[in-house]
């Protein structure tokens, strides 16, 4: 079965499950039963199901099927749980604890959605770069490029064509090659700086002779390489950081849910 057909079927099953739960809630309501108990327990079980993904990842050698399948189930179960969550909470949400719990759930759900979108879009952006760079090796590559650029700039001053390139390097390229990119770039990496530097480097050609131009072309290539490295770093860190947040808030959510269940049953006098 193709990927598209699988997706259609998965959405159909999810919607059917939501409809089934909604009719169950309606039946509870019609029979004056406690509908929030039903949605609460469904929500609890769904959340437990969502937790199983991390367990699968932890026990990778167990023959429980590929993680990719677990992730797909996790995604659709997350959609289902979010809808049940909306059915479960009263509006407006009252009480500091309940607001905290609801906010935590909303954050986890939103970060999950963003992660799902990113995991489909970011790889394509990374693959569009000429080479692939593992995150752990990026500092090493960046240092290599910086050293090469430095040597090239120093070398350019010895051609007897003036120090135009060396001066430009010191003023504009040295910070670019040796300093980390700004926080805005880390959040929203763009090619604006790279384009500006490449344009400025190109403008220097009129002041350079043949050796200088050859040197400038190499420097332009290095600017491109450094920007590729920064882009890979920013995008990969963004994905990993978001994933770490999603996991961290998931555990907070687990604690809050447990407290919520205890409080509810204590309030009802069951416990």
């Amino acid at each position: 079965m193709s990927r598209q057909n699988t997706r259609i079927l998965a959405w159909t099953i999810t919607i059917c499950l939501i409809a089934l739960t909604a009719s169950g809630v309606q039946w509870f309501r019609d029979h004056l039963a406690d509908e929030s108990t039903l949605t609460g327990w469904i929500l609890l079980l769904s959340t437990f199901g969502l937790f199983l993904l991390s367990e699968r990842k932890r026990k990778i050698t167990h023959p429980w099927g590929p993680v990719a399948i677990w992730l797909q189930v996790h995604t659709y179960l997350g959609v289902y749980a979010s809808v049940i969550f909306l059915m479960h909470i009263g509006w407006p949400v009252r009480g500091a604890f309940e607001i905290l719990l609801a906010s935590c759930f909303v954050f986890v759900a939103c970060s999950g959605i963003v992660l799902a979108i990113y995991s489909r879009t970011v790889p394509k952006k990374l693959a569009a770069v000429a080479r692939d760079y593992p995150l752990e090796q990026i500092p090493v590559f960046a240092a290599q490029v910086a050293n090469q650029a430095h040597e090239l700039a120093v070398q350019s001053a010895s051609f007897g064509e003036g120090a135009t390139l060396a001066e430009y390097y010191k003023r504009r390229l040295l910070p670019f090659f040796n300093e980390p990119r700004g926080s805005m770039y880390r959040m929203f990496p763009t090619g604006a700086t790279k384009r500006r530097l490449l344009r400025e480097l190109g403008d220097l050609d009129r002041y350079l002779a043949s050796q200088g131009v050859a040197c400038r072309i190499k420097l332009s290539q290095m600017v491109q390489n450094k920007d590729d490295l920064d882009f890979h770093s920013a995008m990969q860190v963004r994905l990993r950081f978001l994933f770490a947040l999603h996991v961290a808030f998931t555990w907070s959510l687990a604690i809050l849910i447990a407290t919520h269940v205890i409080l509810v049953y204590r309030f009802q006098g069951v416990m």
């Binding site: 954050f107 995150l135 752990e136 880390r186 959040m187 990993r240 950081f241």
Partner: peptide
């Protein structure tokens, strides 16, 4: 936005992996 705000700071998420990879 919280995620993006936190992203702005250098993070050492992959220190463990760094030692693992290419060790």
């Amino acid at each position: 936005m919280l995620a993006f705000a936190l992203l702005a700071f250098p993070v050492g998420l992959d220190v463990k992996l760094l030692s693992l990879y290419r060790a």
